[in-house]
């Protein structure tokens, strides 16, 4: 890919003075650091990310969540419940059970241990209503748009609340099902047509036409 006095950033490795990309993506040179932005891939957790997880297993004091990453995430009972869980008296499944969706924040992750989640903060916790669509995690910046232009357009035109998880799961919650379906279709359109320019304008047109 390149040769010379650079530094290897994300998705790049060096051998002597030669730099190679490890994935298919777009190369970027900034401050002498070469990075490659992936075109397709999976989600790698990072501390502070807001993700939407699906509960796949329950153990005595924690839930195991699928967050579309190589590792399953762990949500301890104390990171979700306001008071300590009494395992003798209460059943952890009465709070959250397999199949339910949770909006949570990644609090710890370093590849040697599974990511830990917290679901206590504002806007976090069990998802009660709405609709969830999945997109490739590499397309998340596209759904948000430049300085949030795309997401604010979607919110304004549909009147729905939209929460984008860093792991490519998006929660849409609106007044009616029709509205939610409209946003879901728009998001799928963004994912499919991310490569054609003038995307924001076309999505605007799409929303106006369908209303």
């Amino acid at each position: 890919m390149a040769e010379g006095k650079y530094e290897a950033g994300d998705n790049v490795y060096r051998e002597d003075n030669k730099f190679y990309s490890t994935i298919v993506g777009l190369a970027e040179l900034r401050n002498n650091v070469i990075t490659v932005i992936p075109l397709k891939g999976f989600y790698i957790p990072s501390i502070g990310d807001i993700v939407i997880g699906k509960i796949i297993d329950v153990i005595p004091t924690a839930w195991i969540l699928d967050i579309r990453a190589p590792w399953n995430a762990i949500l301890f009972a104390k990171e979700y419940l306001s008071k300590p869980l009494n395992v003798m008296k209460e059943d952890i499944r009465s709070f959250l059970d397999v199949g339910e969706m949770v909006m949570a924040k990644v609090t710890s992750f370093d590849r040697t241990k599974n990511p830990l989640l917290n679901a206590k903060g504002q806007g976090l916790g069990k998802i009660q209503k709405g609709m969830i669509v999945e997109v490739n995690p590499t397309r998340v910046p596209r759904i948000i748009g430049k300085k949030g232009s795309m997401i604010s357009l979607l919110k304004k035109e549909s009147g729905c609340q939209i929460y984008v998880g860093k792991n490519g799961r998006i929660l849409i919650s609106g007044k009616s099902r029709e509205n939610e379906i409209l946003v879901a279709e728009a998001i799928k359109k963004i994912e499919l047509e991310a490569h054609i320019s003038g995307l924001t304008d076309r999505i605007h047109e799409f929303l106006m036409k369908r209303r």
């Binding site: 298919v24 075109l39 320019s197």
Partner: peptide
């Protein structure tokens, strides 16, 4: 094959 498959997505990202 890789180049032609990923070309579409690539063109798009450059137009952000």
């Amino acid at each position: 094959t890789l180049e032609s498959y990923f070309k579409e997505i690539k063109v798009g990202l450059e137009n952000v």
